[in-house]
Design a protein around this nucleic acid. Sequence first.
DNA 1: GAATATACTACACATAAGTATAGTATGTCA
DNA 2: TGACATACTATACTTATGTGTAGTATATTC
Lengths: 208, 208
Amino acid sequence: MILSTLTALTYRQQQLLSYIETTMAELGYPPTLYEMAKAMGDITVKGVKDHLRALEKKGYLRCQPGKRRAVEILQGRLFRGEGIPVVGRVAAGMPVLAVENIEGTLPLDPKFAGGGRQFALRVRGDSMTGVGIFEGDYIIVRQQETADSGDIVVALLGDEATVKIFRKKGRAVFLEAANPAYPDIPLKQQTPLPKILGRVVGLYRTIK
Amino acid sequence: MILSTLTALTYRQQQLLSYIETTMAELGYPPTLYEMAKAMGDITVKGVKDHLRALEKKGYLRCQPGKRRAVEILQGRLFRGEGIPVVGRVAAGMPVLAVENIEGTLPLDPKFAGGGRQFALRVRGDSMTGVGIFEGDYIIVRQQETADSGDIVVALLGDEATVKIFRKKGRAVFLEAANPAYPDIPLKQQTPLPKILGRVVGLYRTIK
DNA sequence: GAATATACTACACATAAGTATAGTATGTCA
DNA sequence: TGACATACTATACTTATGTGTAGTATATTC
C-alpha cells in the first residue's frame, strides 16, 4: 500500500478510477465500459477504454482482454477479502473453524494481521487488561499448536478457550494472566491436556 | 450478519457459493456461469443457473438478469468496502481527508465501526494506556466537531493531533489523559483555539 | 516539424456469455 | 400418487458488451 511510488493520475483518470471503486464497493462487481462511459458524462466506450489502458499502464488496475466486467483494482482505497470468521464457542475434539462454531465475520482483511489461517474470538473477562486486551474486544488468532515464551495464545482448557501469555521457565510451561488477580495455570498437570489453538496476532475494539 | 435466519444450503449450493466467494476474494469480480460450471466439475451452465436461482431465493446472492458477471453476494464470509483512510499528518486549515494527508487504508469495513465519515490515525505516545490505547494502535475516528463529556476524541492543538478524553466540568472544558503522568489540557486558553476533529469509535492493533 | 500523451468522436464488427426449450433422474412429503 | 425440490443434460438462440478502424484536437517536449 505504497501510494508514493505510483505515477500520478490525470483528473479524468482519477475520476474514472473513483467511479469504478464506488460501483464495486456498492455492488461487488465492476461496471461495464458502457456504464463507465455514461458515468463519465456520455463519452464513448473507446474513450473509456483508452483511460483504462492508461490506468493499467500506471499500475492501478488490470483488465482481462475480451472478458466482460473483468476489471481488477490493484491500487486504491478499495479492499476485498474473506474476513475473519468469528468463533462463538469451541468444543474439544471439533475443528475450531467448523461451520457450527462460526457466528459471524469480522470484516477485516486477514492479510493485514499477517495472514495464515485465522479466526476471531470475543474476549470475556479481564485477565489480560495489563496488555491492553479488554472485555468485549475481538482478538484475531492465527491457528498454530506451538508458541514461544511470551506469546499471547488461545488455549483450550477442557471445554473452555482462554487467552493468556504462554510462558516457559526451564521445564515449567504455564499460562500467565496480564492481571495480578489471576494465578498462573500450569499446562502439564491438566486433564485433559490443554491444547494451544493459536497465537493472538491482532485485536479490534469498537469504542462506546 | 445473522446466519441463523437464513435457510440452510445443500452441499452443492454451498460449494458453488464458496467458489464464487473465493473467486471474488481473489480477483475482485465474479466468475461467469461457464467458469462456475467448470469449477463444479464440468456441469452445464443451466445446472449452474438453477443453483444460482436457488441461492438467490434463499437470500445469499442477487443476479442481474441478462448482465454478464453481475453476481452480488448478500450473505457470506466475503466483505467489500472502501476501507478507512489512514491519515499521516494533520495540518491546520486543511481538510483531514485531503488526498495529501492519506498514507494508506485500514482494510476494515467502516460500517463495522458504526459508519459515518471516518479516518484512522496511528497512536503515538502512552497518554491513553489507562483505557487500553497503546502506542502504534490504529484508532478509528468518526468526524464530528462536538463531543460529550467522557468521549475519547481527537483534537487539533496547533498543528498537532492529540487523542484524549473530552471532559466538561461546569464551565471548564478540557482534555484529560488516561495516564496520570500527563496533565489536563484546558481547551479555552489555547491559541489558536483547539478543534475537535472527531470521536474515537474503534481501534485496531497488530500484536507482535 | 515530429513524436508522444491525453481526451475524446463515430461506427461496424466480433464474440463472450446469458437465456430458453425440452428434457431425465432421484428424493421427500402430504 | 402427485407435487415440489434438487441436480443435472443437450442444444440452439439471443444479446450484452468488448474490439478495431479511422479519425480530430490540444498540449508538451526534443
